[in-house]
Each structure stands twice: as structure tokens, then as C-alpha cells.
Design a binder for these strands. Structure first.
Lengths: 193, 193
DNA sequence: CCTAAAAGAGACAGACCTGTCTCATCACGG
DNA sequence: CCGTGATGAGACAGGTCTGTCTCTTTTAGG
């Protein structure tokens, strides 16, 4: 069984498709282009993924898992809730500065696949809700559940908006003001009310 | 000269294309579909718009102008800066509740046309920067320019994030927490620092 | 009413799309 | 070494895409 070779090919397709999807979008990237860039036969792709949509979902899930792993690692280096949230903003700052930054692939997937029942939409929404749940979990150590829930939602919105601003070429402004606003939101959440 | 009839046809194409673009996206909506839905000949469309991209830009500009007009009208009903900002959030709350809400067309345009030099990208970015400038202008009446600038950027990010959450089916959560976070941001901006 | 502009209708080109199929080739495990 | 499963290569189908062209019909102003 060449199962390791098999998953190596599959992963290569996912990695190649990821680069094309993030640069040109999902609909604008044809299967022919993916297999040409990956230098594989078309049937190799269709043996691993029944349809293009399945490949898109696989790409999103792979990137989401990678994202979670990286944030897990960063969170371990901080102790307070505010510091853990700060590592998430640090991660975004580095991302925004990347030369190949083209905005959030998950947000783009929500834009191109607007049907909430579509597997691609659901995969993208999972990533967003995962980030929100992560921040809520962090904040629940220091805030009442209700306040943690609200602050996590506010921080998620702030981060998504910052990513959009960064895509419009204002990465530095976005991250600086996101940090300031995050402090204000956390300060507000600590006030008993 | 049938200039009024001419612009009536043109506007009808823009209105029809808008509905299709917001429902299905830009790349997923073909020209054939637009002319069928608008019940016009293909050449009528191509006489008004040299290419599909030009139609997309026209749709975005028409919607942006409409947006600005509506916010102008609402702002006139409020006096303080906080109240004027609140009318913007009110507008978004009503929008999120609309049965035909499918997320922000401008954000979707940025997602599908990632090239910052593309006319569609630029048209979408103009709308976002217009909203930010509007809020900065409002805040400058009560805050120092630097604080107004920062708060406007934070509020824009919050609103964009709220729109994304609303598209994921959490309109109520999004708007409630956006209001709370907006208060926290404005409170933070008033603190001398 | 008459004329000129606008619009309708539809064929057409050429490219691209997803997905299927066949057959040759290769690599590797038993 | 042999055979089995993964892969390569490319034709192919059937559809859709944008944009052009021609010819006819409608519309509306003077």
C-alpha cells in the first residue's frame, strides 16, 4: 500500500490549490490551472476529491487546523487572558505583514459561497466560530461567562474588520487600532454592570 | 434625444445585476443571466457598459451613493457624535434583519477581485474609506483629530466584522455586541492619554 | 409623419469550465 | 520477479463564459 505516497500527492494538491485560491479566488481558479501548477494528472486530483468543492473544503480545513495549531502554541507562552488575546493579535500582525497576504481565505469563501447550507460556507463558518470559541474560553478564566461571550464576539468582529482593512492596504493602521480597541473592549467587559 | 429612456434602461440593468450579484456573487453571475433576468438584449447591455467589469463598478457606485444618502438623512436626526454613530449602527441593524441580506457587496467585491489596481477593488475600497471618513468627521466634533481618526478606524472594523457575523446567521448577537463594543471604544477615546 | 437613435433577437466565435474516460506507465510490496 | 494499485497523459463531452456582429423592429422627438 502506497498510502503515504497517496497522501503526499493529495497534500500537494491541497497546498497548490491553496496558493491559487488565495491569490485569485475560488471561482476564478480553474481545475486545469490547479493541476498544471501542481504538475499532476487531472485524474489524480479527481481520485482524491470527487469534485472541486470537496477540494475547496479540504483546503479550508487544512488551513483552519494549521491556524489552530499555531494559536495553541502561542497561547502557551502567555499567562493572563489579556496576554493570550495579545498573542492572537500578534499573530495577525505578522500575517498582515506577509508579502503574500491577500486577506482571509475563509471570509472570501463566505463571500463566494453565500448559501449557508453549502459545505464550503459551513467550513468557513466553522473557522470563524472556532476563533470566537477560543477567545471566549480564554476570557472565561477571568470574566463571568456572559461577559466573556460578549467580549469574544466583539474581538472576533474587530479582528475580521482589521483583516479587511489590511487587505485594503492599511495593515499598520488596522493592527494598531485593533489593539487599542481590544483594550477598550476588555476594560469595558471588566466593569461590573 | 431619448436620454431619459436610455438611462432608464441602463438603470434597470444596474438594478437587476445588483440583485443577482448580491445573491450569487460576481463571477458566478453570467452576463447571459443578467440580460435574461432584466429581459433586455445583450447588445443593449454592451452599449451601456463596455464590459462586465464596468457594470460591476456601476453597481457598486450606485449602491455606495444610495448608502451615503441614507446615512446623511439619518445623521440629520441626531445631534451628539455618539447619537450620530448610533444611527449608523441602527441602519446596519435594519439591514441585517432584511430577508434578502447576503452580506456586504463591497466586501464580497474585495474578496473576488483581490488585485488592488483593479477598478472593482478600488470602487469597493472607496465605499469603505467613505464610511470611515464619515465617522471620523462625526467624531472630530467632539474628539481631537488623532482620537477621532483612531476611533473611526476601530468602528469601521467593528462594523465590517459585525456584517460578517450577520452573514453567518448571528445578526442579533452581532449588532448587540457591536453596540456595546462601540460604547467601549468611544469611552476609551475620550480618556485623555 | 419622418427620421434617427435605441433596442430586440439571435447567431457566432473562441475560450474556458467541470468532470469522465481510456490506455499506457510506473513504483513498490509480497 | 510479478502483479496490483497509483499515476500520467490527453482526448472528449457538454456546458457556460464574455464579447461581437448583423439585421430587424421599435420608439420618440421635431
Amino acid at each position: 500500500m502506497t498510502s503515504s505516497s497517496s497522501s503526499r500527492k493529495r497534500q500537494h494538491v491541497v497546498d497548490t490549490a491553496y496558493l491559487l485560491f488565495k491569490r485569485d479566488g475560488f471561482h476564478a481558479t480553474g481545475v486545469d490551472r490547479i493541476i498544471a501548477e501542481a504538475d499532476i494528472a487531472k485524474m489524480t486530483m479527481y481520485r482524491h476529491f470527487a469534485a472541486k468543492d470537496e477540494l475547496i473544503v479540504a483546503v479550508l480545513e487544512h488551513r483552519a487546523a494549521r491556524f489552530e495549531r499555531e494559536l495553541d502554541r502561542l497561547a502557551a507562552t502567555a499567562d493572563t487572558a489579556a496576554a493570550k488575546i495579545a498573542t492572537i493579535l500578534d499573530w495577525h500582525e505578522r500575517w498582515f505583514r506577509d508579502a503574500d497576504f491577500h486577506g482571509c481565505l475563509f471570509a472570501h469563501a463566505l463571500a463566494e459561497f453565500g448559501d449557508p447550507d453549502h459545505p464550503v460556507f459551513k467550513a468557513a463558518a466553522r473557522q470563524k466560530n472556532g476563533l470566537r470559541a477560543r477567545m471566549r474560553f480564554i476570557l472565561e478564566k477571568e470574566l463571568p461567562p456572559e461577559r466573556a461571550e460578549e467580549a469574544a464576539a466583539a474581538l472576533l468582529m474587530l479582528i475580521e474588520g482589521a483583516t479587511l482593512m489590511a487587505q485594503m492596504g492599511e495593515a499598520a493602521t488596522a493592527i494598531a487600532n485593533a489593539r487599542r480597541a481590544a483594550s477598550a473592549i476588555l476594560a469595558g467587559a471588566r466593569v461590573p454592570q
